[in-house]
Design a binder for these strands. Structure first.
Lengths: 193, 193
DNA sequence: ATACTAACCTACCTCAAGGTCAGTTAGCAA
DNA sequence: TTGCTAACTGACCTTGAGGTAGGTTAGTAT
């Protein structure tokens, strides 16, 4: 008995995003999606003719999500440190599941086999995220919460890299590693200079 | 005309390592190896019956390489900062090619689809590397070259994470990002406290 | 010269991937 | 009710993946 949904597209993207975070873009198939949604492979091809199309939709979904999260954070009345914490816990840690990494990291790892259309999108998303974190750090340094040497942008790179890699590592070594890394990074940004 | 080599096994491992760093374990095939070596797929199966066997051999090769590099570094008469630089440039940057990432990062990214036998090996390798970097940092802090707050181990985690993620990012954003991140990390470890 | 071993090949198998196509079926607007 | 559109299905295709079986050929030890 077939059930028609008008939000199937969204459903597919949501599931695909999860599989992207746990297995990587090249390591989940239309069959996987179809099975878990209880529909046919061909039905997914109806919504996303090529896998590349699904990939582009995934990038769009990530961007929407970034924009939502970032503007929520900007609206949030709190210190820069609190905002940074929210970024780390909420934006990067995702569902809290140990098995998921940042979708952008996942795409980066597969970059060599990725459809052409997804690469510029990936770069844009990375830059967008970096810009946001740089903004937070600038705020924090301006009002004295944070102190670190050098360029704000360079420090933002460091923070983002740490978050991403920490997620990857914690999948293998347990979540304590994530906490350890983030705590140390925070200490460096408060104690330095 | 077939040419027999007794070091074919090593040749295969070398090439596989390169493909691991550029494309990931699940994204290169026996066919790829065979083509580039000018032999048959079946011939590779002769040396490594299952891909899992090749994977285990890869882990072993990485370990051998670590041991070589680390003991070279320990023997090297220089400051801790110089040793750290050598680690960053030599041990992590590999062939200097922008397209290669750390093989351990690559394996981590594919962890969900990785053959069972490779996972404990991967964890061991990560730990081994962390231990080595912690040793360097301890030295540096002891003799006053470095100063950073908190636990040495935690700082080692931070350094390693930064290196790995910087390599991944620089594949998408260019090698300046790698340099930027490493410079900032160095600044933090010299300036802090 | 003989016999053994290991490197290698051709030819094949199975399976799952991405993808296509020609329908069927449900919902909705005129 | 008619007719259009969009969701969905089953049946199929091609390609390339990992893997196997059996044979050939080169090198080596006796």
């Amino acid at each position: 008995m077939q059930v028609r949904l008008k939000n199937r597209k969204q459903q597919i993207v949501d599931l695909a995003l999860e599989l992207l975070q746990t297995r990587g873009f090249e390591n989940f198939s239309y069959q996987d999606l179809a099975r878990q949604l209880g529909i046919t492979k061909a039905s997914i091809h109806h919504h996303f003719p090529k896998k590349e199309d699904l990939g582009v939709a995934l990038c769009q979904a990530i961007q929407d999500w970034h924009e939502r999260e970032f503007s929520k954070s900007r609206a949030f009345a709190g210190s820069a440190l609190e905002k940074l914490d929210r970024y780390v816990r909420g934006t990067l840690r995702y569902g809290g599941c140990e098995k998921k990494i940042c979708p952008l990291s996942s795409l980066q790892a597969d970059i060599a086999s990725l459809p052409e259309a997804m690469r510029p999108a990936l770069k844009r998303l990375d830059d967008h995220e970096l810009e946001f974190v740089a903004e937070l750090l600038q705020q924090g340094r301006d009002n004295g919460e944070l102190s670190f040497p050098g360029d704000v942008r360079a420090q933002a790179v460091l923070v983002v890299l740490t978050c991403k890699a920490a997620l990857q590592y914690s999948r293998v070594h347990g979540s304590e590693m994530f906490d350890e890394a983030m705590a140390q990074m925070k200490q460096l940004m408060v104690a330095s200079q």
